[in-house]
């Protein structure tokens, strides 16, 4: 009985600390990417903590809601935030012994992000402006192509690991039997492309733009202000962090603390996790600075490539379990 209790408490404390960790780290990650991008452009850039200040500033302001907005407009930020946060809480970051990892596998995590996007796209259409519509419509196109690609990546990973549970997948990836595989390489490339598209980064979308015709994500949230905007900003930071965590958890799972490990292993895991995030953030900033934004109708080609890579990875594994 004692065994169960301690493992329960361990799992719960890991779960809660992970939920707080992702929430607190995500604005820092966004701030880091902004800072590095600015430095590459030889600007000084905002301080690292600017994202937190922005959020606090937004939260303190009054919210302005368009006259034509319905009740849905006001609850969407909470839904988007909640689903994204739950999804982020279920991806192992520094430890695999999450208490609730069995309640949702990788497919559920992806579908939770799908829920967030569904409601955000609806919010874009709620006020009845052309910019909101353009954002939602393009988001629908990008998501329609990115989601199957992501599902193919999930298939690839699930077939390698024999499981869709993320903690099991991470465990299998850590084991020596996996080695270098073509299919996993394909999945990695595909996942990076999907992550870029899903997080509205360059070259798919420009997170810094307010040039009307080039925006996708920014167009959907154009009518939001105050606390609602703060929640949506925080959600998109969380989503970026989630994708980084996902890539880290599956492809570079080293230092993930296994279930039941002592405290210092967890602390090391957390430190390494922060380092991984830092490296990923810098890589993203460098990549974004090197590349120009694509035309909207070039994006399907990019996502189609991701889809084909994921599909080929799955197909290879159907043909032979060792590829």
């Amino acid at each position: 009985m004692d065994m169960i209790d301690t493992s329960l408490i361990d799992g719960l404390s890991i779960q809660v600390s992970q939920m707080l960790l992702v929430l607190l780290l995500s604005p820092l990650l966004t701030g880091l990417v902004r800072k590095v991008k600015a430095r590459i452009l030889r600007r000084r850039g905002p301080p690292l903590l600017q994202s937190y200040r922005d959020l606090i500033r937004l939260v303190r302001k009054e919210a302005i809601v368009a006259e034509s907005a319905s009740w849905l407009f006001r609850i969407v930020p909470y839904i988007v935030f909640a689903t994204t946060w739950v999804a982020a809480a279920l991806v192992p970051t520094f430890a695999t012994g999450l208490l609730f990892s069995w309640s949702a596998d990788l497919i559920v995590i992806i579908a939770l992000l799908g829920s967030a996007r569904f409601f955000l796209a609806l919010a874009g259409m709620d006020v009845g402006t052309s910019f909101g519509g353009i954002g939602s419509s393009r988001e629908a196109m990008i998501a329609t192509l990115a989601e199957p690609a992501l599902m193919m990546i999930v298939f690839t990973l699930a077939l390698v690991a024999g499981s869709t549970q993320l903690s099991t997948v991470a465990g299998i990836m850590l084991s020596p039997g996996v080695g270098l595989r073509v299919s996993i390489g394909m999945a990695l490339v595909a996942l990076v492309i999907v992550a870029i598209a899903e997080n509205a980064r360059m070259p798919v979308d420009n997170p810094a733009t307010h040039l009307e015709l080039t925006m996708v994500h920014e167009a959907m949230v154009l009518e939001y202000s105050g606390r609602h905007l703060a929640l949506l900003e925080l959600s998109s930071s969380l989503k970026l962090l989630l994708y980084f965590s996902l890539i880290a958890c599956v492809f570079v799972p080293w230092s993930l603390a296994p279930a039941g490990a002592p405290l210092h292993v967890h602390l090391i895991g957390a430190a390494v996790y922060v380092a991984k995030l830092g490296v990923a953030g810098i890589l993203l900033a460098v990549f974004e600075s090197m590349i120009a934004k694509m035309r909207v109708f070039r994006v399907p080609d990019l996502l189609g490539a991701a889809f084909m890579l994921g599909f080929l990875g799955t197909l290879l594994l159907f043909v032979s379990r060792s590829l």
Partner: peptide, 13 residues
Amino acid sequence: ASAKLRRAPAWDC
């Protein structure tokens, strides 16, 4: 947060 809420015409850039 501030609980203030104001209804206004849509911004629409």
